[in-house]
Every structure is written in structure tokens, then in C-alpha cells.
Design a protein around this nucleic acid. Structure first.
Lengths: 226, 226
DNA sequence: TCTATTATGTGATAAATGTCACATTCTCCC
DNA sequence: GGGAGAATGTGACATTTATCACATAATAGA
């Protein structure tokens, strides 16, 4: 746990950039930065939601227990608030957040954060925008994932990682096969087989955890056709 | 189009109840009520999002074009804001809203609504709460729907209609078979078959559009086990 | 009322995916 | 470096669901 310096922080959220310097001072007094290692749980489904979690740096999976096992709902890259809906929406967390790589989280007192919403309209509006954009993205992904078959779903998340997360065609997979299957709601074996198939067809190459997209256009086609 | 009387309106949203009387006056001047018949499109995917839509009474489906056809994302019952995320999140609507029964919608000027957020913290907070609760519910449903098989998915939405929408075991189905299949992401034929099966087993009874849940415990069991 | 159109029910079959079993490989820790 | 446990690859088979084809029923207009 470190004493953060919110005023000087270069990784402020768009909302926090709209806070006055006295508000930032308040934030600083009601905020604690904690560093998580890969695999650490940041907050857990079923436990009390007592703080706002702000992902200052790192990568996190949001996941929830489903009828047949874990379901990964989304990956969150920094900078981003992690569980606004589960913190405001209910007293108890409805889902968990787990670090996929070493990550820095600032926990902000709920009362302080709420106070900013009440007293700083720009801050509130920025939070609303973030919530809205997230929902739009979620709906789009939900629709795609529910209508595409396995090859399309897998292609989509590989492309998503390449485009949204890493901005390159060659990257280290942040999820293992099991997690990939939790993400696209299928079995571990099916993911394994499909990745082999993509490899055989020269669409991707996998070396340990490192994935290279060789034929992006093919992957796009597979993703689109479902 | 009617001239609404927001100040006297008995169907105010939780957020609107927090507006001052002068704010309500402003709302009244920047708001128009329009009545939609069953099947009418309230706003359409791809068109400009220019107003906030508040569902004062009625029932609406939120739906989006997916890779293989229409996907119903959720049913919205009154009272509720309809497309906050698609209105704030982007200039263009990412999904459509269509009336399932005759519905009264108040369209509110976006600028006016935004002004309330900026100037009335309680209002903003209430909007944030609504967005957060929606996301929680969506995540839960998304997880369930992606992990359950067809019988479980169908059982779930029937129970949902019974519990959340109508609060009775006997109700008129608001969706036809095709829409049901768009909702649970399967084929029309599969829904038809599964409803027949539920009927044969005495779990439900269907008479035209009227559905009666006869063995709620059985339906719960089917929904839970996936 | 009649008819065209749309919605629904159902069998036969194909396709996709899950499940089980087991071999192999990787990784972490001593 | 070696071994235990976890992660991954892959074949065989079972299960689920989609698809096609067509019959029947409901509904909206003329």
C-alpha cells in the first residue's frame, strides 16, 4: 500500500482530470494504491463492495460464476474504473476482478467518489459517459458472441486483443486456453482444437504463449461470417 | 404528440423526482410525449440519437442486428429510460427500440437532460445508479445465457417474464416464437419444439398467445441446471 | 368472407460442439 | 535437475442444435 499523489498523477482518469485541485486533495486523502501480481484477485464476487477500484496500470479480467463454471465478461486495460456498476449497483459484488499481469489499483473511498458525483457535474457526466460507452461495447460483443459459432467467436477475441489491447499482430496471450474457453463460452478442448486448426491453415502462429496473426484478413472473414 | 405536464406527471422516473420545480418546468418545455402502437419503432439502429427516450408506460424490446439476424437484448418495462447508453455513448444509435404493446414515450431534449446532470448532483447520481443496475442485470443474464443450453435459456426467460414483467403465472406472451428465438439466440424451430415439449410434460400450457406456468418448480430446475 | 401472407409445428437429417480418455508438455518449487 | 501438478493436444464418440422440407394454422386486408 502506497500513499498516492493524486495531484501529480499522470494517469488520471478522464473524470479525475475534471476535479479541482482541492477535490484532488480530498481524493488523495481517501485513496490508497495497491499493487497486484498476476493472478491476484482485486475484488471478489459475493464480498462487500466498499471501494471504487481504479486500474491505473495493468490488465484485468472481469469474471463471474455461471451455471457451469466461470465466465469471463471482459478484459479491462488501464486506465479505467473497474467495478463501478458492481460497487454502485449493489452492496455485494456481482462479479470478480483478477489481475492478468502485475497491476496498480487505486482504491477510492465510496463516499468521496459519491461526493464528487454530487458536487461536480462534469465529473458525474464523464462517469456517465464511461458507463454508457461500456454498455454499448458490451451489447455489441454480447450480440456477436451469442450468434457466432466457435470459429467466429475465437477469431473475434483474437482480433480484439490484437486491435484493442496490444495494437500489434504479435503479442503474448493474456489468457490461457481454459480462460479463453471461459471467455467465449465453450470447452477447453474446443479452443485447443480450433487454435490448432487456425495454425495448420497458417492463419496464426503460436509459440508458447506468443501469438502472431499471420492472415488477418482470413481471421476477419472467419469472425464476420460467424 | 402531446404537450406533457411534467410537473404533475405521476409517472416520473426516480431521477426526475429529484428535480426542482423550476427544473421540471424546463423539462416540460423541452419534452414531447409521443404514443407508439404495437410494432412501432421508437428509435432505430444507425440513425442519429437526438433525444432521450423515457418509457412512461408500455413495454419495449431493445434489439440489434447481429451477424446472423436480429438479437433481442432486453425487454424494458415502464417506467424507464430507454436508450441512455446509445444516446450518450455515440452520436448514432447502436440498437433499436420497438414497442411490443401500445406505449407512451417522452422524448427529452438531450441538452436539457445533460444540463440536469451537470447542475443537479442527485439527478446525476440517480442516473448513474440506473445505469449500474442495468449493467449488473445484463451481466448476469449474459453469463446465464451463454452457458445454459436451450431448455435452460427458454425456461429462464419464461420465468423472467412471469416474475419481473407480469408478476403472475398466467400472461400473454409479449414476443412471438421468432422473437423468442432472437432473444435466446437459437432457431425458431428449436423454440417451437421446446415449448411443445414443456407443454407435453405439463410444465406450461399455451393457448394462443396466453401462457400459463403450471410447474414453476420444474421450470426453475430446468433453468438452473442449464 | 375469402385469400394471401405470415406464423407455427414437426419429422428427417446434417453439422457443430461437448465429453471422456489419455498422452504429452510445461512450470514451478525444492 | 528432477518430479509433481497443472496445462495442453488430440482421437473417438455422444449429444445438442441447426437446417431443410413441408404441413397446418392464424391473421390481416381486399
Amino acid at each position: 500500500m502506497a500513499n498516492p499523489q493524486c495531484r501529480l498523477c499522470g494517469l488520471k482518469s478522464p473524470a479525475a482530470k475534471l476535479l479541482s485541485s482541492s477535490e484532488l486533495e480530498t481524493l488523495e486523502l481517501n485513496c490508497a494504491q495497491i499493487n497486484f501480481k498476476k493472478g491476484d484477485v482485486i475484488f471478489r464476487e459475493g464480498s462487500l463492495a466498499t471501494n471504487i477500484a481504479y486500474l491505473k496500470s495493468g490488465l484485468v479480467k472481469i469474471h463471474m460464476k455461471g451455471p457451469t463454471g466461470d465466465k469471463i465478461l471482459r478484459l479491462m486495460k488501464a486506465p479505467s474504473y473497474l467495478g463501478l456498476p458492481t460497487t454502485f449497483g449493489d452492496k455485494v459484488n456481482h462479479y470478480s476482478a483478477t489481475a492478468l499481469i502485475d497491476s496498480h489499483i487505486c482504491f477510492i473511498s465510496l463516499d468521496t467518489f459519491r461526493d464528487f458525483i454530487f458536487k461536480n457535474g462534469s465529473f458525474a457526466y464523464e462517469i456517465i459517459l464511461e458507463l454508457c460507452r461500456n454498455e454499448l461495447a458490451d451489447y455489441q460483443k454480447y450480440t456477436n458472441m451469442s450468434q457466432k459459432q466457435l470459429p467466429g467467436r475465437l477469431a473475434e477475441i483474437l482480433l480484439c486483443m490484437s486491435h484493442e489491447l496490444y495494437k500489434t499482430n504479435k503479442f503474448e496471450l493474456p489468457l490461457n486456453i481454459n480462460e479463453l474457453s471461459d471467455f467465449i463460452s465453450t470447452s477447453r478442448e474446443s479452443v485447443s482444437r480450433m487454435l490448432s486448426e487456425f495454425s495448420k491453415e497458417g492463419i496464426i502462429a503460436i509459440n508458447k504463449k506468443e501469438l502472431t496473426i499471420l492472415k488477418e484478413d482470413m481471421l476477419e472473414k472467419i469472425s464476420l461470417k460467424g
